[in-house]
């Protein structure tokens, strides 16, 4: 799997950074406008998947492998839980313990942007890891399709 044609590679090289930037924007502004951790994370994951489709599995896995994806996945989930647990310092699980600040500012709404960032990291890494896993499993299916007749039953 050496990737697609040079046209696709060039377009992907130009577009990817914008997609990631848009995803990060959606994550960061999740508490003010439509969006949030999950949609933003999905968009960032789409950028990784685009790289993988255009350049082939080896190139993508060399820069961002499945081990680091699953590590980021768990770190994001644990970060979200940690933010919820830090609320216990104020007496309640999930308490919004940071000063809420001015409405409609980027830095406002207490812990919500932090939770959004944690979810964004988790979702993007998780979807990428799922895609890698399915791609690796899928190889086995192609191999199985190529050699019919070997019925195991």
């Amino acid at each position: 799997m050496q990737g697609m044609t040079i046209i696709v590679k060039t377009v992907v090289r130009i577009v990817t950074s914008f997609i990631v930037l848009y995803g990060i924007y959606i994550v960061l502004y999740g508490h003010l406008t439509p969006g949030g951790g999950f949609p933003g994370g999905v968009i960032v994951a789409a950028a990784y998947i685009l790289i993988m489709l255009a350049y082939g599995k080896e190139v993508a896995l060399r820069s961002f492998g499945d081990k680091s994806a699953s590590l980021l996945d768990n770190l994001g989930a644990f970060g979200f839980l940690a933010i919820a647990l830090l609320g216990l310092t104020g007496g309640y699980f999930f308490l919004n313990f940071i000063n809420h600040g001015q409405p409609f500012r980027l830095v406002s709404a207490g812990t919500l942007p932090l939770s959004n960032i944690a979810i964004g990291v988790k979702v993007s890494a998780c979807l990428y890891a799922v895609f890698i896993a399915l791609a690796i499993f899928g190889r086995a299916v192609y191999r199985a399709m190529e050699e019919p007749g070997k019925e195991e039953r």
Binding site: L134, F137, G138, A140, V141, A144, K150, E151, E152, R153
Partner: peptide, 13 residues
Amino acid sequence: MVALCIRLYEKYK
């Protein structure tokens, strides 16, 4: 579900 489908295909062809 999709992962299970792939695994099922791998085993049962």
